[in-house]
Amino acid sequence: METEINHRWLMQYQIVNLVNQCRRLIRAEFDDRLSLTDPQLRQKLAHYAGITRSHGLQRLYGEIQLELIKLEGPDVLVHEESPPGEVARMYRGQPVDAANSRGETAPRQRGSRMYRGRPVS
């Protein structure tokens, strides 16, 4: 993001209205008071929208994102360095091994297996 604080997006009435509704829901659910002058407001809204159980807060944040796209244009996607044609696969937030994702199996290690905390042969 930019090093300077850009509050131009908060000059739009529709966006400020949606942000204030989000702030109320965040205050009710997480007991955190967000300030409109906070330089990290956009990041905090995204954080709380990602961890909330409230569908209302998720919907409002989606509407804010749509308004921001209208105002600033689409976001630029940043990708990690990966070989061309190969997509990094994720499972529950963890990267999946590329060899296993292609159906290859790793050699099985011999040793004791555990079942309910006890070794089984």
Score class of each variant (00 low, 15 high):
residue 7 H to C: 05
residue 18 L to S: 06
residue 5 I to C: 01
residue 1 M to F: 10
residue 57 L to F: 00
residue 118 R to A: 06
residue 12 Q to M: 11
residue 95 P to V: 12
residue 50 G to N: 10
residue 31 D to T: 01
residue 3 T to F: 14
residue 62 G to R: 02
residue 72 E to W: 01
residue 39 P to G: 12
residue 116 R to P: 00
residue 100 N to F: 08
residue 101 S to T: 12
residue 51 I to F: 04
residue 89 R to L: 13
residue 75 D to E: 13
residue 30 F to E: 08
residue 82 S to E: 10
residue 25 L to E: 14
residue 103 G to P: 03
residue 114 M to C: 07
residue 16 V to H: 07
residue 60 L to R: 06
residue 9 W to Q: 13
residue 114 M to H: 09
residue 117 G to Y: 09
residue 22 C to F: 03
residue 109 Q to A: 11
residue 102 R to Q: 10
residue 31 D to I: 02
residue 71 L to P: 06
residue 13 Y to W: 03
residue 99 A to M: 09
residue 57 L to I: 00
residue 41 L to E: 04
residue 112 S to K: 14
residue 86 E to M: 13
residue 76 V to F: 01
residue 76 V to N: 03
residue 83 P to L: 12
residue 26 I to P: 04
residue 38 D to Q: 09
residue 66 L to D: 10
residue 93 G to H: 08
residue 27 R to H: 10
residue 26 I to C: 04
residue 98 A to Q: 04
residue 81 E to V: 08
residue 36 L to G: 10
residue 110 R to C: 01
residue 75 D to R: 07
residue 1 M to E: 13
residue 12 Q to S: 13
residue 36 L to W: 07
residue 119 P to G: 11
residue 21 Q to E: 15
residue 93 G to I: 09
residue 84 P to A: 09
residue 56 G to P: 00
residue 2 E to N: 11
residue 65 Q to P: 01
residue 57 L to Y: 03
residue 119 P to E: 12
residue 110 R to A: 03
residue 8 R to E: 15
residue 83 P to I: 13
residue 82 S to V: 15
residue 91 Y to T: 01
residue 116 R to I: 02
residue 30 F to T: 08
residue 64 I to S: 01
residue 48 Y to S: 05
residue 17 N to E: 14
residue 39 P to L: 08
residue 50 G to K: 09
residue 9 W to T: 11
residue 15 I to M: 10
residue 3 T to A: 15
residue 4 E to C: 09
residue 64 I to W: 01
residue 103 G to N: 08
residue 89 R to Y: 04
residue 27 R to Q: 11
residue 45 L to I: 02
residue 70 K to Y: 02
residue 71 L to Y: 11
